[in-house]
């Protein structure tokens, strides 16, 4: 079944102009996201994957090419795309619930309705007990769950996630991947997920897009046809191992060329 594309990145390039020499971060990138598809962008450090996400978010402008969302060109940031940052980006002066409500300010809602929506979304990520906690009272994983609840609360068309679990410890990261997968399976939404962790990319995605070293291009697209719902036990299945190996092989040759080793390559 081929549905109309939700997001299209068309021959996109990004050049950072810097005094002596320009740096080409992205070169002629084409990428299509189907409706409610979960796509991971994986690549070595500095390959331009975060830049690409930021351009899709409308926070940076492409040097060439365009991003199209639902048939319309993206010209700036907007509420149709929700962003989850690696830095948790919760406001320290607000409680968890107030942080979620902040995202709902723009909407014409009754006051009670806004609080109710915020509570529902905190419950979705298992934080209903912590709605009155301030960010400094929450662990890194909990903060990121609030950030995910916030990004989902105003029902964007696309969720953009920039290494959202990159700052978490391995155990928490695994739990967050499961939580994200569960939430996504229950409430489908189009996701573009940037990571440098191979296992993470294979576990959460419908499709993994491997990028080359700078200048970033699409190297390979690997469909992940693992069944859903997915659970942690799947990590030890041979099917998972095979896909993991394919993605790792693809990114490893890039990493060798760049003389860096991606996370997860040590196993």
């Amino acid at each position: 079944m081929v549905s109309a594309p939700k997001v299209e990145v068309r021959s996109l390039s990004k050049v950072f102009e810097g005094g002596d020499h320009d740096v080409t971060a992205l070169s002629d990138v084409d990428l299509t996201l189907g409706d409610n598809e979960f796509v991971s962008l994986i690549g070595t450090s500095g390959c331009g994957k975060s830049t690409l996400l930021s351009i899709v978010a409308g926070l940076q402008e492409p040097s060439e090419g365009e991003v199209v969302l639902d048939g319309e060109e993206v010209v700036g940031p907007g509420r149709d795309r929700g962003l989850v940052f690696q830095s948790y980006t919760l406001f320290p002066w607000q409680t968890a619930r107030a942080n979620v409500e902040f995202a709902l300010r723009g909407e014409k809602l009754a006051k009670g309705e806004r609080a109710k929506l915020a509570r529902e979304h905190l419950a979705l990520v298992g934080l209903e007990q912590f709605e009155d906690s301030y960010p400094h009272q929450l662990s890194g994983g909990m903060k990121q769950r609030v950030a995910i609840a916030r990004a989902l609360s105003y029902r964007p068309q696309v969720m953009l996630m920039d290494e959202p679990f990159g700052a978490l410890d391995a155990l928490t990261r695994g739990m967050m991947q499961e939580l994200l997968t569960r939430v996504w399976e229950e409430h489908k939404i189009t996701v573009l997920f940037v990571t440098h962790d191979v296992e993470e990319a294979v576990f959460v995605s419908d499709r993994v897009v491997v990028m080359t070293n700078r200048p970033g291009k699409i190297k390979e697209e690997i469909p992940i046809d693992l069944p859903r719902p997915r659970a942690h036990e799947m990590l030890s299945s041979p099917e998972f191992g095979e896909l993991y190996g394919r993605v790792l092989e693809s990114i490893r040759s890039e990493a060798m060329a760049a003389d860096t080793v991606p996370a997860g390559a040590s196993r």
């Binding site: 978010a57 409308g58 926070l59 700036g76 940031p77 907007g78 509420r79 795309r81 929700g82 962003l83 940052f85 830095s87 980006t89 406001f91 902040f102 995202a103 300010r105 723009g106 105003y154």
Partner: peptide, 14 residues
């Protein structure tokens, strides 16, 4: 002020 705070504001349409 972290630039991510400002970017968050932009993505929320502020």
């Amino acid at each position: 002020v972290p630039m991510d705070y400002v970017n968050l504001g932009y993505t929320l349409g502020l």
